[in-house]
Design a protein around this nucleic acid. Sequence first.
DNA 1: TAAGTTGCCTAAAACCTGTAGGCAAATGAA
DNA 2: TTCATTTGCCTACAGGTTTTAGGCAACTTA
Lengths: 197, 197
Amino acid sequence: MARAGLTPQRLTQAGAELADEVGFEHVTVSALARHFDVKVASLYSHVKSSHDLKTRIALLALEEMADRAAQALAGRSGKDALAAFAEVYRGYAREHPGRYAAAQLRLDPETAAAGAGVRHSQMTRAILRGYDLAEPAQTHAVRLLGSVFHGYVSLELSGGFSHSAPDSSVSWARIIDALDALLRTWPDEPDREERKA
Amino acid sequence: MARAGLTPQRLTQAGAELADEVGFEHVTVSALARHFDVKVASLYSHVKSSHDLKTRIALLALEEMADRAAQALAGRSGKDALAAFAEVYRGYAREHPGRYAAAQLRLDPETAAAGAGVRHSQMTRAILRGYDLAEPAQTHAVRLLGSVFHGYVSLELSGGFSHSAPDSSVSWARIIDALDALLRTWPDEPDREERKA
DNA sequence: TAAGTTGCCTAAAACCTGTAGGCAAATGAA
DNA sequence: TTCATTTGCCTACAGGTTTTAGGCAACTTA
């Protein structure tokens, strides 16, 4: 009986492709076994569990995104860097919706720390070097950028902006413009006692 | 044999509570049957399918959020309205993480149109009445606000901001400040040809 | 109180996860 | 080459979830 040549890597890769085709929530050990024309139990020699498989796909996606982002950021700064990073982020999600959904999987802390998630926040910080932001404003800005990118893309993917003008790509571009302007003029902390009216 | 008194409403309510306790992804028809101490098949008289149940929970969550937001917005405008809306959004998600996850369920278009999702975007638009934004900037801003709120809350819920200073609540407040400033000075469309260097 | 309706039941099929143990193919050493 | 070991995929099975079909008992109403 010929062997299928399964490895954790091939399973992860095939799982990622499957996720993009049918949605991450439909990625199952059984479906993957069907894809390799192999019995379900066989996969459990290569992957600990369904959760393990999903985690591997998530880590793959995070790494791919980080690689693309690093590419895009090389040699750019300021608004150019911001726009390039944004483009990568949105592009990856549209190109690989299943992988993008996988990247949203909640990982346990040690797994997350070992993965490429940290590279992401470092790159976001790198973008902000083009702007003049001291701590703690810089951290607030990192969180804002992460929120906008993730929020926009995930709303777009779930169909929130379709069937309504203006086109989503236009809003995206204008939002980058707005974020750039905001980062250049990040407001000081308002005095929360005085300004009541 | 005493009857359990099941109705779609009670199932939806219990399902929402279960979601907050164990996570939306673990809300299952079986689990709900156990909760009511009833056989699984019995639920299918009240709910068409597992997906139907989840959809009902999602619609309940959207409605609850819209109700709270409408309350919070009454009598406020400008930054007050913005901050109140943001507080409701984040508060609901923290108070009811399972319901909030449910609200993120991708609904088919007609279901979404019938639900309270539209009330949300109308309210976001209402907030912007306190700022001087003409179309299409207003739509861009609506999308930005939605993205920030959703993105921030969902990153926070998945643990992105925990274990790192400054406290998440501080960033949230400062991001509201920043959004307020941004909306008051929303940038004109830059001339994309000229500014290359 | 009989008729009709409703509500929860048993039964069963289909599918997914996960474990245990077995046989055959690949590997490597004598 | 052959024999032992390891590795890879298999069968078998146990348990869980979804969903449909059909039945009986409990409410409702006339």
